[in-house]
């Protein structure tokens, strides 16, 4: 593996991208889970697919745009979808959860339409759906690293505000913080992380990397800060082991990473149960 890493550029790019995703997806995931918004990740990943499909369609009909990385269009759609969800949450004040399936089904609808207009599936689209190691281009890696840095800086600088909003939004409002701006920044970060992560784990599996490590972490963490520590640890473990086996055995990377996330969750649950029983 080490030997292969020094020989193959694509492997190095995939590894760097994977490590960044393994960190930022669980970090954003912690906030999503404690705010009971984990379904948003699924919804936005499908909207990202719409953007990818749109980009592929465009490149077919407008050769000028063929060089554009579909990830950018995916990000644009994902951010747009995030803002639409926020909007609908206010429109349907008493049925806030309706916004999430509403955007998700609309996204899939347009996505399928774009795909059919572009004459169906091709290998590119397949790589976006299920993730790929070979498909990570130089521009993908740069995009992922830049998104990773932005997200980590934003979370560090706005940590206490994001924590307060997640724990008790009403009280957070009475501290005079710019709540709307911070919520906006947060939802844009969610959209960016999803679009960035999809190269490695694939659109259909992005949300698992934001939820499974967090679910495991919450069982053993003793504080909010520890929740992040374990979530990132489990996320990186899943990405590294998933990518290794995916490379060695030629399995789909997204699926392998998710299977390892699930294995980690099971081990944590079992060990935790065993420890609790030993205590009592």
């Amino acid at each position: 593996m080490i030997d292969a890493l020094t020989h193959f550029d694509f492997l190095r790019r995939a590894l760097v991208s994977g490590l960044v995703i393994g960190c930022i997806a669980p970090v954003i995931g912690v906030f999503l889970v404690v705010r009971r918004l984990s379904m948003i990740a699924d919804s936005l990943s499908h909207v990202t697919l719409t953007g990818i499909a749109f980009s592929l369609l465009l490149s077919k009909h407008a050769p000028l745009l063929a060089g554009l990385n579909p990830v950018f269009m995916g990000m644009t759609f994902s951010v747009g979808g995030a803002l639409a969800i926020e909007k609908f949450r206010h429109t349907y004040r008493h049925y806030q959860e309706i916004a999430i399936p509403l955007i998700m089904s609309t996204g899939i609808g347009f996505g399928v339409l774009f795909i059919s207009l572009a004459n169906g599936f091709n290998t590119d689209l397949f790589a976006f759906l299920f993730g790929s190691i070979i498909a990570v281009r130089q521009s993908d890696m740069v995009t992922i690293v830049v998104v990773g840095l932005i997200v980590l800086f934003a979370v560090c600088f706005l940590f206490k505000e994001l924590f307060s909003l997640s724990f008790d939004e009403e009280n957070a409002r009475t501290t005079g913080m710019p709540r709307k701006t911070i919520n906006f920044i947060f939802i844009v970060m969610v959209a960016l992380v999803i679009a960035a992560a999809m190269r490695i784990v694939g659109i259909l599996l992005v949300s698992s990397l934001m939820v499974l490590p967090v679910a495991a972490s919450m069982k053993i963490a003793k504080s909010f800060k520890q929740t992040f520590f374990y979530a990132v640890l489990f996320g990186e473990l899943a990405v590294l082991s998933g990518m290794y086996f995916s490379y060695v055995l030629d399995w789909a990377p997204g699926g392998t990473i998710v299977v390892f996330s699930f294995l980690i969750l099971c081990i944590v649950l079992l060990v935790n149960k065993w420890l609790l029983r030993a205590e009592s």
Partner: peptide, 9 residues
């Protein structure tokens, strides 16, 4: 951690 959120303002 919860009490610390009272210091944000």
């Amino acid at each position: 951690e919860v009490v610390s959120t009272g210091l944000i303002g």
